[in-house]
Amino acid sequence: MSRAVDSDTPSDGVLPVTLRAIDTRNWQTCIHLELEPEQARKLASNLYSLAEAYVEPRCTPMGIYAGVQMIGFVMFEWHPATHTYSIPRFMIDRRWQGGGYGARALQAIIDTLKGEQPDAPILISLTPDNMPARRLYERLGFVDTKHRLHGEDVLRYA
């Protein structure tokens, strides 16, 4: 798989992963990120998610970047009544999957949220048959709550 590499690429070839706000400069890039067809059936589109964030102020959409390239999307929500975060959307573009970017992106998300509210649990959900996502989430410390919401298993990071 060929990836564009900028001049700031470390010698190990792994680009740093950062989160950046979705705004007028990058929203179109965001809506053109792609999943494999089977994955796309399990997750709302980025376009839908941006529309949701527009009308739901508790939603925060962010681009996931490897170096200067947007490679994914996340949307998280703060729930003040329960003092928890939830991550209803998380995706890495199909062309960037398999290189460890999903794990580094999720860790960047965890670090960002814990930096804002260190004691707040983080919830993420997935369809019961999404074993690759489950393995990733559990590897990074999420634990299955044994609770199901809207047909999806809910995992918790404390």
Rank of each mutant, 00 (worst) to 15 (best):
M75E: 12
Y48I: 07
A133P: 06
A120F: 08
P128Y: 06
E138S: 12
A158Q: 14
L113R: 02
A53Y: 04
Q28E: 08
H32W: 03
R135A: 07
M1N: 11
W96K: 05
G63S: 14
H147L: 12
M70H: 12
M91V: 04
I110R: 11
F142L: 04
S2Q: 13
R25A: 12
K42I: 07
K146A: 12
E34A: 14
T112I: 01
R20K: 15
A133S: 13
S125L: 01
D6M: 02
H150A: 13
P118E: 10
L50N: 09
I22T: 06
G67F: 08
R25H: 10
I122G: 12
I122K: 12
M62T: 01
S86C: 12
Y157M: 01
P128C: 06
Y54A: 12
N130V: 09
R20M: 05
H150I: 02
G13S: 07
S11D: 12
F76G: 10
M75Q: 14
V17W: 03
G100A: 04
W27T: 00
I110Q: 07
A53P: 02
R25I: 03
D6T: 13
Q117E: 13
R104T: 11
R20L: 04
D119Q: 14
Y137S: 11
L140I: 15
R41I: 01
T60M: 09
A133Q: 08
G99A: 11
R135E: 04
I92L: 05
D93N: 11
A133T: 08
L35E: 06
H32G: 11
E138L: 06
A4D: 02
G151D: 05
I92P: 04
H79M: 09
G115Q: 00
R58M: 06
T127D: 10
D153W: 09
V154I: 15
T29W: 00
T82V: 09
P121F: 01
H83A: 15
Y85H: 15
L149I: 14
A120V: 07
H79P: 00
P57T: 06
E152C: 14
T145Y: 03
V14M: 05
D119N: 13
S7L: 04
G115K: 00
P88T: 09
E34T: 15
S11W: 00
L33E: 03
A133N: 08
M91I: 03
Y65G: 00
V55Y: 15
E56G: 01
R134C: 03
R139Y: 01
T18A: 05
W78V: 10
A53W: 08
K42Y: 03
L19H: 00
D111L: 10
P88G: 07
I31D: 03
A81D: 15
D8E: 10
T84C: 10
R156H: 03
S125K: 10
V143S: 07
E52P: 01
L149M: 08
L113W: 02
S125I: 01
S2K: 15
I31M: 05
R41H: 08
P128M: 04
A21C: 04
V68A: 14
V17N: 02
S49P: 03
E36P: 00
F76A: 10
L126V: 05
Y157L: 08
Q28F: 02
R94T: 15
Y54I: 02
A66M: 04
A105M: 06
L106Y: 08
V14R: 13
T60H: 14
H32I: 00
I71R: 08
N26I: 01
G102C: 04
E52A: 15
R148L: 01
Y85P: 10
T60C: 10
L140A: 02
L47H: 10
D6Y: 04
